[in-house]
């Protein structure tokens, strides 16, 4: 942890746009996981949290936050767990580039924040003709 960058966590991380390894927009940093080193007393950001309900929880609507998280889990049961053990938690080691937006070394589909995107695709967009055509430039 000693080689970590010194960042202003709330200013440089919180609410930033996340990009997955292919550059797909995949949510914002809704909250941070912070741990305290018991010996030195320093604080470390250990993970970026993103996904349904997390922002509501952080802003104080805890019941709404928990309910959204539960509902999302019910709608998208993890039949194929991806690279992450917790799909709302991105360990900070996976954050590759921190600038106006943050690139993370995971695929969007591994994240809970992308569940609704896939749900909308399967249940709505897929049923409308012409959904795959890219408008010619």
């Amino acid at each position: 942890m000693t080689d970590g960058r010194v960042l202003h966590a709330t200013l440089d991380l919180l609410d930033r746009q996340l990009l997955d390894r292919d550059g797909v927009l995949c949510g914002n940093v809704d909250d941070l996981e912070i741990q305290r080193d018991d010996t030195t007393g320093e604080m470390f950001v250990t993970a970026l949290l993103t996904g349904p309900g997390i922002l509501a929880y952080r802003l104080g609507a805890r019941r709404l936050g928990r309910w959204t998280q539960r509902a999302n889990r019910r709608l998208h049961d993890d039949d194929a767990p991806g690279a992450l053990t917790d799909r709302t938690r991105i360990p900070i080691e996976l954050a590759q580039q921190i600038g106006p937006s943050i690139s993370v070394a995971v695929g969007a589909d591994d994240l809970a924040s992308h569940d609704a995107e896939r749900w909308a695709l399967a249940h709505i967009i897929d049923h409308i003709p012409g959904n795959a055509s890219r408008a010619p430039q």
Binding site: A120, L121, I125, N131, A132, A135
Partner: peptide, 8 residues
Amino acid sequence: GSPREATR
């Protein structure tokens, strides 16, 4: 992009 790339 196509609507598949921005479904919501």
